[in-house]
Amino acid sequence: MLNLETQIGSLTLKNPIMPASGTFSEELAQVFDLELIGAHVTKTITRQKRSGNPTPRVCEVRGSMLNSIGIPSKGVEAFKTHVIPFYRQYDAPLIVSISADTADEFAWLCEEISVPGVDAVEVNISCPNIEEDGKAFAMRPSTTEAVIRKLRSATDLPLWAKLTPNTGETIDVAKSAEAAGADALVVSNTLLAMAIDITTRRPKLGNLMGGLSGPAFKPIALRMAYQCAKSVTIPVIGCGGISTVEDVVEYLIAGATAVQVGTATFIEPQIMVRMVDQLEAYLNAQGLTDIRQLIGSVEDGEASDGLVFMEAAP
């Protein structure tokens, strides 16, 4: 018997493949049976209704994309009445992603959505904190710790902290999130990037800059997932550029307990289901029986902490 089951703290997922926030919605149920994936992760919501950024909100860069969608949100009430009931039809755990401009509002929202039907809260602390000049909470250990502490006391549900690659302090941020009570880390959100149309000389995104996602981003997010897995004991969920089953396996080997698939779903909407099948086939072909035989199995030898926790390219 093959075992694809994985454990994120107290939550058991029947397989390690789940969607990344903002790249998944109820509509995908028209493409495949949503019960087949490990968990459901919803688009980040905010307390109030918001309209998001100006268009164009996406552009492509060679083999990848940038987005500046922002967080258009119908608000928490609409979410509770329309979205949570939809996902209650499924056994797969529902992970709700939330965001706020201040730590207090974050905590308020977290408490507000800790309702039956929600199995964990993913806190998108990669968004700007208006009390810190718009710097993302997860850019610094201190702001990460402060917001996670408030969130921790706002809910009994598992808390997943979603980190940002836009920091030079990945390891300290990861440790702060763990110390403040996060149950898992999602590594990571998109990397701030830019593209300019050389004919018009205009930035390709309405918001000037946006987040890089897709295959070009994978080595960066993989490096971060590896570093986080080496520095905390809570589970790390790998996210960034996954588009093949080999990418999934690579993240597991790096130390991720599960993975999130984002942009690849835009290219092939049924890709997560295909990856579940292919992961099984991979285990079979390798003579393995359990994905736990892959998780954290990276052969990094006797690498010193100095190397593992490096925050600069050599």
Binding site: L28, N67, P269
Partner: peptide, 16 residues
């Protein structure tokens, strides 16, 4: 028309 990424309603990039 509007630029699209997912085409099925997930990403919100195609709003007008």
């Amino acid at each position: 028309e509007q630029q699209m990424a997912c085409g099925i309603g997930m990403c919100q990039c195609c709003v007008r």
